[in-house]
């Protein structure tokens, strides 16, 4: 039978990670974390929890693998097309009046969201005065994101999403296909900055007009969500926007009163 963690063992593991390596996963939602750890123990064929724990404590190259595999890096271009349609029609026109636009993608995974945003900015003729800061805890996915190379077989879906978001160009004009891969145009990539940033432990590093943090907070417990909201609040200009994933909300948070929700959208405007 597969080895499965109990709650106590998960606690021991999280403690080790913190004490030995300084990685703090203690405020992550446990159900998903437990599932990811079980999956990793079974992928790497550990006969027991004790051996898994020993490996994590003693082998720092395995720690890298642990972080890569424990985080959920699944993402899509123009995921939730209606969200991108609102960015296009309601949010970007407000940012357009600024002399310079800084956007932070927190938890950008392999970058699909960042390229989608760059395309929107390009079409709104704002890309040249924008900078997209793309960060994640997982260095591996950032390396991927930086390359701008994606699988060709996803392009059909992405192109449909793009059209559903109100895109009118030929989606394939944004990339060059090469066998089963595509590479996105340098022009899009030229305005992106990639860096590791851990939302648990790293602090604010700039002031932004728009922060996107989608499908990251679902992995955090309430306390950590609250801390990250404060971090975002501290990193947003007055009248800046915060965009969350389709199942995430600012409601009931301590900073809610400083923000106004864009009608029916998971987008909030900082009003004070």
């Amino acid at each position: 039978m597969e080895v499965k963690l109990n709650e106590e063992e998960l606690g021991l593991l999280l403690n080790d990670l913190m004490e030995v390596h300084g990685y703090d996963f203690t405020s992550y939602a446990k159900a998903s974390l437990r599932r990811r750890v079980n999956r990793l123990m079974s992928l790497d064929k550990f006969p027991s929890f004790a051996e898994f724990r020993y490996k994590i404590k003693s082998d720092s190259s395995y720690l890298k693998r642990f972080v890569e595999e424990i985080t959920v890096n699944v993402t899509e271009m123009f995921r939730d097309p209606s969200f991108y349609a609102i960015l296009r029609t309601k949010i970007l026109p407000q940012l357009a009046t600024k002399p310079f636009i800084r956007i932070w993608h927190a938890g950008c995974a392999t970058g699909e969201e960042v390229y989608s945003m760059a395309i929107l900015l390009q079409e709104a003729k704002l890309l040249n005065k924008s900078l997209l800061y793309a960060t994640d805890i997982n260095p591996d996915v950032l390396e991927e994101a930086q390359k701008g190379i994606f699988q060709l077989n996803y392009m059909k879906q992405y192109s449909e999403n793009y059209v559903a978001s109100g895109g009118r160009e030929d989606f394939s004009s944004y990339y060059t296909a090469n066998y089963d891969r595509v590479i996105f145009k340098d022009q899009l990539r030229s305005r992106m900055i990639f860096a590791t940033h851990n939302l648990v432990s790293d602090s604010s590093f700039n002031e932004f007009q728009l922060i996107m943090c989608r499908n990251v907070l679902i992995y955090f417990d309430k306390d950590l969500q609250e801390r990250v909201f404060t971090l975002f609040d501290n990193s947003l200009e007055p009248l800046g926007f915060l965009a969350l994933g389709s199942k995430e909300t600012l409601r009931f948070s301590a900073i809610e009163s400083k923000f106004q929700q864009v009608k029916d959208q998971k987008i909030w405007k900082k009003i004070e």
Binding site: E7, A29, K30, A31, R36, V72, I218, G245, K247
Partner: peptide, 12 residues
């Protein structure tokens, strides 16, 4: 499902 009997969502 979390131990405190709440829901969690996961996009894996």
């Amino acid at each position: 499902f979390e131990d405190d009997l709440s829901f969690s969502l996961d996009y894996s």
